[in-house]
Amino acid sequence: MHIFEGFLPSPWWQLWFVFSIPVIFFGMYRLNKLVSEKRELLPLLAVAGAFIFVLSSLKMPSVTGSSSHPTGTGMAAILFGPAIAAVLSLIVLLYQAIFLAHGGLTTLGANVASMGIIGPVFAYVIYKAGMKANINFYVVVFLATAFADWATYVVTATQLALAFPAEVGGVAASLKAFLLVFATTQVPLAIMEGALTALIFKYIIQV
């Protein structure tokens, strides 16, 4: 879920940039190193990013009636690791802001944090842990991407709650409200994203 331009007041939007920028720089450093060693990875990463963009612009059928879309970043984290996934997400989010008016510029820091960093890290950690625990591959992929997706929404709700604490009950109370609205309605979507990614891997391996 993208936070739209202008929605986060100071100092929150700046703080999320402070959180995201070091990760992005680390990712860029990794990327630069990887690409200068293996030049053929450059077009491959570019098409992977384009794939994420296109995937996220496809509307998912939604039970709640509102339409949403898969984020695809969990998959990128599994394939390339979270640092590079963060960089790819940054470009995808920038393009989504400019091509589709999804998200924004001051909120880019916050959106990168939720969709490009925390979500993918979740996916990566769950994937690694699951593979170590010798759980069925598809189940692991499902869990990793579903939880990554859901974690993304929880982070978004937290970002909003931190920026807009309730008068009575503070951050906790508004977090409850935002979670209620965003995180719960997104549970089916997260499950679908997980199922979708697992199916994709299943088909890819079949081919």
Binding site: M28, L31, N32, V35, S36, L42, P43, L45, A46, V47, G49, A50, F53, V54, V87, L88, I91, V92, L94, Y95, F99
Partner: peptide
């Protein structure tokens, strides 16, 4: 590398 990836990504989107 970041800018090149951005440019090629644009094209292939």
């Amino acid at each position: 590398s970041f800018i090149e990836i951005s440019m090629m990504m644009y094209r292939y989107i």
